[in-house]
Amino acid sequence: MSQTYLLTPDNAALSRHPVAATNKATTISGKDALAGAAGGVVSVLLGQPFDLIKVRLQTSDSGNVWQVVKGIWLHEGPLAFYKGAALPFLGVGASVSIQFMTFHSLRQYFERQQHSQRASTGQNYLSGGAAGIANSIISGPVEHIRTRLQLQPHGVARLYSGPSDCVRQIFAKAGVAGIFKAYPTTVLREFQAYGFYFAAFEASLGSIASLKGKERKDIAVWETIPCGALAGIAFWIGSYPIDAVKTRLQSDGFGADARYRTTWAVVKEIWQYGGFRGFWRGLAPTLVRTSLSSAGCFAVIEHLRKLM
């Protein structure tokens, strides 16, 4: 999955009453869940076309962004940019809840242990990494299925009629293990990505609050937008080479049809044909995508939370 949807408590309130605040049980209200789901939908709408371009570039050793976009537009049509978007839309609400509760539970644990007003950047990284591991239970299968739908031929040559047919065919070939193809690599990607993501958001938001002398609840919606964009960029800068390997593994065949026998085989192939730069193919559209989708996601979340 792509990056998602952080709902953050009032850090200034924690600074005034650190022990009492961090001893509160972590909960996610209906308001938070609704705002997070709405932000996630916006994130998918803004980011899905760029994700498709990323996947096409990561699974090819030639071509550039313009050639990929032109080919999709001419041969598959504009709606093809949203191939595989159905599952991310369906999984948004669950992902928000898992990430939010895992991140804040662990962060509050750190704060209780050290009686601190705020977790350190390193602790936010570890808390975010734990949220990523928890999220991988959903993101692993979702991204696997989405990748196959994004890469399948267009028109009568297509392999799957939709997400459910893709799941059915994968299960018939490889069972549950097939649905979770490349799962260890996905876990590693999620840990690294969400560690950077949450740490960057908390650090940038905390800096803005300190510079302006504001409490968290008084920060305007527009002020969270650059923090969200920065968090999204950190997400991918910290994890993109791992994601490139994961994408090739998830697009591979099963059993005797598998092209790669090990993860290391993917790493060697990418290095052989692209060198160091091969691990970063497709990064430019991904950074554009993540800046838009993360900023839009946070803006929607904050706006809805203030309204409700």
Rank of each mutant, 00 (worst) to 15 (best):
D243G: 11
T8K: 03
L106I: 11
A295G: 15
K181F: 06
G129F: 02
L149A: 04
S239G: 13
W66C: 01
T186M: 04
T22P: 00
V41I: 14
S97M: 15
K268T: 13
G122I: 06
R277W: 13
A157H: 09
A86R: 05
G47F: 15
S294V: 07
D10L: 11
Y273L: 10
W66H: 07
L14E: 15
H144A: 04
M308L: 14
T247Y: 06
V41P: 01
F235A: 01
Q152G: 07
R289Y: 13
A85S: 14
F103W: 10
G178T: 05
G129E: 02
S207M: 10
G132D: 06
A200N: 05
A200I: 08
G132L: 05
E223P: 00
C227N: 10
K83Y: 07
Y273H: 14
E76I: 01
G71I: 07
V142T: 05
A231Q: 03
Q150V: 12
I72A: 02
K54A: 13
L46V: 00
Q67Y: 05
Y5K: 06
R118D: 15
I138H: 00
G132S: 02
V69G: 03
I145A: 07
L151N: 07
T59V: 10
K212L: 15
Y260M: 07
H144I: 06
V92C: 12
A244P: 01
G162V: 05
L149K: 04
A220M: 08
G63S: 06
Q58P: 00
P153L: 05
L6Q: 14
T26W: 10
D10W: 03
V92W: 08
L6M: 15
A174W: 08
P241H: 10
P241T: 09
E215S: 12
N64Q: 06
S95V: 13
V267D: 10
L6Y: 14
L106T: 04
S204M: 09
S207Q: 11
M101E: 12
R118F: 02
P285F: 14
L292F: 12
Y5R: 02
E143N: 09
G282Y: 00
F191I: 00
Q48S: 10
P141C: 12
A182R: 02
S127C: 00
K306A: 08
V187Y: 03
A38Y: 01
Q108K: 15
R168M: 14
G122E: 11
V92D: 11
R16C: 09
G77M: 06
W73E: 13
L188M: 11
T262Y: 02
D51K: 10
K212G: 04
I242T: 12
L159V: 08
K173P: 05
R107N: 13
F110D: 11
L34D: 03
I137C: 11
C166L: 12
F110Y: 15
Y273A: 09
I301N: 05
Q250P: 02
R107A: 13
A203S: 06
A174R: 08
K31G: 04
S15A: 15
T4D: 13
E190H: 00
Q67A: 14
V267Q: 10
A299G: 05
G155L: 11
A258K: 06
